[in-house]
């Protein structure tokens, strides 16, 4: 690991200033991703701004939304009574991620900004445009079993690994940020980016901007929800792919639906067109299959991930079946 400076401000503004003024500075929250990357030399910040003393860990209601402080722990959010009651999908997604030990360290903001697990990103001796722009994409013609089927570019085919974010994009959350130029809000769906020509940028945060909270609006999706994560072992593995499904049912008729996928794109992948297919239809396997077919439009596979073209629609169907309990 390189040597670095370490500061631990207590006021958000001081933290923002520290990072805004120094291109080589980084916030550190739980450290479960950043420290790993530093040990491997993938990220080499010269200054760490520890934000754990900022008052951003609360989970509280604000009008019609539940506000999750950026420093709220993944375990705290997953087990929060209000989250479990009003947003059980979020709780399910969080508990499908990592391990209890990691969830006890990981934070909301850090989880959103965790970096891809693409093996080429991690190996300094291999090309990776995300790690080192201009070196090429190792995965494009390499081992790409885990990689994207949507929204990739020829510069990068990595996927975003977060489970939590899949639920949050489905639940129409909003990200609150504070930066050198003041406060602003981003729709969760607009927070992460597609790789395009700048895969080195994972999100639309500007330099120095600090996530302060994520707002999750009240919704009817309190009952018929499911987070289906497909992985090679029963626990403690990143998703081959995952589906967040939420239904609002009137008898057997779907009044509203939310669907998103993880492990298929550079960002949590909201399936709006498929949601529309569901609305007004009976909650049957047939309906789910139709939605899955629409969801897969535009998907394209690489050498080793063609299975995702079969697995993704099946997983959508399975998630919806479980959500609807049919």
């Amino acid at each position: 690991m390189n040597q670095f400076q370490y500061v631990r401000p207590t006021k958000p503004q001081a933290a923002i200033d520290a990072v805004a003024k120094d291109a080589n500075a980084k916030f550190i929250a739980g450290g479960t991703n950043l420290v790993d990357l530093m040990k491997r030399g993938v990220m080499t910040p010269q200054k760490l701004v520890d934000i754990n003393r900022l008052p951003l860990a609360k989970i509280e209601r604000q009008g019609n939304t539940l506000r999750l402080g950026a420093l709220a722990l993944n375990s705290a959010v997953a087990n929060d009574a209000q989250v479990r009651e009003r947003h059980p999908l979020l709780s399910l997604a969080l508990n499908a991620g990592a391990s209890p030990q990691l969830r006890n360290m990981a934070t909301v903001g850090g989880n959103m900004l965790q970096r891809t697990r693409c093996t080429y990103f991690y190996d300094l001796s291999m090309p990776c445009n995300k790690r080192q722009p201009g070196t090429g994409c190792g995965a494009l013609e390499g081992i790409n079993r885990m990689h994207a089927i949507f929204g990739f570019s020829d510069k990068c085919i990595a996927v975003h690994p977060s489970d939590m974010s899949v639920a949050l994009v489905a639940l129409d959350a909003t990200v609150l940020v504070s930066g050198p130029k003041g406060n602003r809000q981003l729709a969760f769906a607009d927070f992460h980016r597609l790789p395009g020509d700048t895969p080195e940028r994972d999100s639309n945060l500007e330099p120095g901007e600090l996530i302060t909270a994520v707002d999750v609006p009240d919704s009817p999706f309190t009952k018929h929800v499911h987070y289906q994560k497909v992985r090679e072992r029963a626990s403690y593995a990143f998703a081959l792919l995952s589906v967040a499904a939420a239904l609002d049912l009137d008898g057997n008729t779907i009044k509203a639906a939310r669907l998103a996928m993880g492990g298929v794109a550079h960002k949590p992948w909201r399936l709006t067109a498929a949601e529309q297919v569901l609305v007004g239809k009976p909650a049957t396997e047939d309906t789910f299959r139709q939605a899955a077919t629409v969801a897969m439009q535009g998907a394209k596979a690489f050498k080793h991930n063609a299975y995702k073209l079969r697995l993704a629609p099946n997983t959508i169907v399975q998630a919806l079946k479980t959500a609807a309990a049919v």
């Binding site: 079993r145 497909v230 090679e232 081959l240 299975y307 995702k308 079969r310 697995l311 099946n314």
Partner: peptide, 8 residues
Amino acid sequence: PITPDKLV
């Protein structure tokens, strides 16, 4: 190994 991609 017999991973899900080989069975789906």
